[in-house]
Amino acid sequence: MTASMSQCLMQMVQTDYQMSDYQSEIAPRWCAGCGDNAILTAMQRLCRDEQLPPEKTVCVSGIGCSSRLPHYMNAYGFHGIHGRALPIAEGIKIRRPDLNVFVTTGDGDNCSIGAAHWLHAIRYNMNLTVLLHDNQVYGLTKKQASPTSPKGLKSNTTPYGAALNPLNPLSVTLGVANVSFVAQAVDWIPDLLYEILRKAHQHRGLSFVRVLQRCPEFMGHRFDDWVRDPMKMRILTHSDGLRLKPEVSRVYKNQETHDPLDMPRALAIASMQEEIPVGILYNDPSVPCYDDLRAGERPNTPALVKTVLDEEFDKVGIWPDSADPAGSTE
């Protein structure tokens, strides 16, 4: 179809947003070497490439290192309270389909204090892009074990080693009803991080992206083996999913063609131990979105409110004999 006249005329005033249009006046204050920088950059690249108007973009976060991200974006930001980024984002989206809403959350925020919201957000499948910055440790509160910390991690709350096996955010998410998009990225392959983020943004529904993120301060060498050995990274590709640039393809030769609708395989990939999978594990665009389902048939207008109120008052009304009951002639 050809574009309508309005669309053509609108394009006349399209602005050309640059990376710098998404950089706030506050310089990032993450530790040097922190993986959050890569995520911020990927996000800004996405905004520029999709030309998202900064005023129509909202980044919502909870508490933690990851949740500082909205401060560094020149967009609307909502740096809320620990664990509650998702319901805040849902509230924003429910009556504002025009806004692009991103949620940046950490492993403590999302998988511990806000775990209930996480499961239900997947179930609601609202049109949000969720980035789980998973560095497997509480950073902002100075090194406590998180639900995704590896067993045996020595931290301030587990000085003799974390006692439990970590929770796997990917397989948990894949197991929730109405799941529609699950991907994993790592901060040290920025191109793929960007590509995955782009796919996530373009997906209609809740896209959940877990980003394995290095914390040089508290988890210094956690991912060294994988950072150094590209063959330990399993890249998931598909004609409907991720397509690799040649320079990335050349470095990361361990590739698997994975159909993003293949749930059993997605679950198997999610559980890999030796290799870190990177790519889109699951993508089902047909799952209905709660914000669409609850969008409301008609807009709320004074006339409509009056009609509905009058209907309700009529049901419980009493009037004197002399008065005209419905305010109209019969």
Partner: peptide, 12 residues
């Protein structure tokens, strides 16, 4: 460059 994670180490 394509593999740079924008961690600011070098620019610092």
């Amino acid at each position: 460059t394509a593999r740079c994670t924008t961690c600011n180490e070098c620019t610092q």
